[in-house]
Amino acid sequence: MTTTGTDTHRGSPTCLPIRSDMDLMWIRQEVRRLATEAQFSLVQQTKLVTAASELARNTLVHGGGGHMEATVLNEGVHTAVRLVFADSGPGIADVDQAMSDGYTSGGGLGLGLGGARRLVHDFRLDSEPGRGTTITVVMWHGGVPPTRQAI
């Protein structure tokens, strides 16, 4: 028996490099395109693009560059965009500290990670010192489904 109603269908992911501040512009453009494709409202689009900009800059500045993988997900009537930012930089020793507002190791405002988390529905940070950092965020359209399988 198939259960199409609860399966998560994934579009093919797009992968963009994060090597320079020019790449950040491409990332913002691509995320805007996907958010529009997922029929997000203008506010949601702006929130997701802003979060992507913060996270991509984090990958660039603190991770020494990396890449972003973006996927549009469909779960029943719910649509989502999932973004994965990965770097193989020094990693984050104290995740809680890095997530807190005002904490910065790079001369910014220290709002990047904590701020980005407030802009999206799901946020996951995996990091190990010396092994790099992977941050996964998901933004849902039409409300967060009861069973979140996307992350």
Binding site: M1, T4, G5, G76, V77, G142, G143
Partner: peptide, 20 residues
Amino acid sequence: GTLRLVVMETALSDGAELIN
């Protein structure tokens, strides 16, 4: 049984849409 599932599925997705 399959027909019942098809109806359930349409009912649920329809309901969710209506509620939204």
